[in-house]
């Protein structure tokens, strides 16, 4: 019965592992059906997570980005908190519109930042799509097979782009290209699905390993 002694939550470390295992099993129970154990741990989870977020809010945001600059003499930072608190007027019928000023600033900023994202993230991909599609003398070392792949690359890219045209009726060759685009889209989605599977299985493997190795000490 040595195993039982090791297994039972008789030390702080074992207790921690037991807690983790109970949490895991309780949440897994939703696979069978919704039940009181799942419900309890779901509520605990949300409560703990919501409580936890307050720490970084106070310690990292309010202290680091508000209090520290203030102590360094940047007095205008004093306005950040009351300005943010204008959001709280949202519950007031009379003053509710004031919160829209804050929301407006947030919207404006995210819209303004989008320009840089657009330019640095997406525009270079236009350049990256310039591919030689026939092996000519202009590109040294370009194999016929590479050229075929490049050609397919361009065809797929353009056909999927065609599928995403909305503002006119798709007829004739455009329609056929769009259908091809839709099929290519399905290939891409299938590939993502197949490629993702591994990550998800890895997570489950990690969890099963925790249950079997850390908790039950069987492997």
């Amino acid at each position: 019965m040595e195993w039982l002694n090791d297994f039972l939550p008789l030390s702080l470390e074992r207790m921690g592992i037991w807690i983790g295992a109970i949490c895991t099993v309780a949440l897994y129970s939703i696979l069978y059906r919704e039940n009181p154990a799942y419900r309890l741990f779901e509520h605990l989870f949300i409560g703990l997570a919501a409580g936890y977020s307050l720490g970084p809010l106070v310690g990292d945001i309010l202290y680091k980005y508000w209090y520290l600059p203030l102590t360094e003499g940047a007095w205008w930072w004093a306005f950040a908190v009351p300005f943010g608190m204008w959001l709280y007027f949202i519950y007031s019928e009379k003053y509710g519109w004031v919160s829209r000023i804050v929301i407006g600033v947030l919207i404006g900023a995210s819209a303004g930042l989008f320009f840089q994202q657009f330019c640095s993230l997406y525009v270079p991909q236009i350049y990256a799509s310039f591919k030689p599609i026939i092996p000519t003398g202009a590109n040294e070392g370009l194999l016929a097979s590479n050229a075929i792949n490049n050609f397919i690359f361009i065809v797929v890219l353009l056909s999927v782009l065609t599928y995403f045209l909305f503002s006119f009726e798709q007829r004739g060759p455009v329609k056929r290209t769009a259908v091809l685009g839709r099929w290519m889209l399905m290939i891409a989605l299938g590939a993502i699905f197949g490629n993702t599977l591994m990550a998800r299985m890895a997570l489950l493997v990690g969890r099963v390993y925790y249950l079997l190795h850390d908790w039950l000490m069987q492997i």
Binding site: F130, K131, P132, A138
Partner: peptide, 11 residues
């Protein structure tokens, strides 16, 4: 642009 660029890249 992509078509144009690919033709330039080809030739």
């Amino acid at each position: 642009l992509i078509l144009f660029g690919s033709l330039v890249a080809t030739f």
